[in-house]
Design a binder for these strands. Structure first.
Length: 202
DNA sequence: CACTTGATTGCCT
DNA sequence: GGCAATCAAGTGC
């Protein structure tokens, strides 16, 4: 069942934890991709130096973070990657959850073609391992980019639904790639599924 | 395997 | 002008 608005409109840290095991559904050109979320990070508002909304910073790019929970915040970074987030918590707070890694569960050949131009079984072991194990990689595999900025996860084009298997242990750790964030780099706001091979950093 | 470095551009100061 | 919530290729052990 598709997650409702109330799921997203809660404490961001809790949403980040509970998104593990849920299924991200992505439809385009008549194709349906499904992937299990295996790694997330919470980005908070005013007091989180790692967040794009730190200290109340509000620009055209991050505007959707201040809006209603359950919408997509997609942004472009390092000159070549799109990263996808889910807006959370109350309007005006500016919080979101970054989806850092997923495990394909439906139409894996489409993921594979979007990333490497061939079917999954034709990939090298290295390519199989690197299909969706990172925030920049999964957006390529699932064809998510800035055109998806602001989309509502209660719509039909892209949404998240309940998972099937929650028999896993959740690991909580520091976030990745935010060494500039001073005290905020040590916040324990990252979650991932223990022993899952698609997690970006163990 | 671990570590280093270059790529490439939108965004904010 | 400087940098970024990253990735892939290259080096060396």
């Amino acid at each position: 069942m598709k997650l409702n608005r109330n799921f997203y409109n809660r404490d961001t840290d809790k949403v980040a934890r509970e998104l593990l095991g849920k299924i991200l559904v992505r439809k385009y050109n008549g194709v349906t991709l499904e992937a299990k979320i295996v790694e997330t990070e919470a980005y908070l508002g005013f007091d989180d130096r790692a967040s794009h909304t730190f200290n109340g910073r509000r620009t055209l790019r991050n505007e959707v973070m201040y809006g209603r929970a359950g919408h997509l915040y997609v942004y472009f970074t390092y000159g070549m990657y799109n990263l996808v987030n889910v807006v959370t918590n109350k309007v005006g707070l500016g919080e979101a959850v970054l989806i850092r890694a997923v495990e394909p569960v439906k139409n894996i050949d489409e993921f594979s073609k979007n990333r490497f131009g061939k079917n999954f079984e034709e990939l090298s072991n290295y390519q199989k391992k690197n299909l969706t194990n990172g925030p920049g990689k999964l957006t390529i595999a699932m064809k998510i980019d800035r055109n998806d900025y602001g989309k509502d996860l209660l719509g039909n084009e892209i949404y998240i639904k309940d998972g099937y298997n929650f028999d896993f242990k959740t690991i909580n750790s520091k976030r990745i790639g935010i060494d500039y964030a001073m005290e905020a780099k040590d916040f324990l706001l990252r979650y991932y599924i223990e022993d899952n091979e698609f997690v970006s950093v163990k």
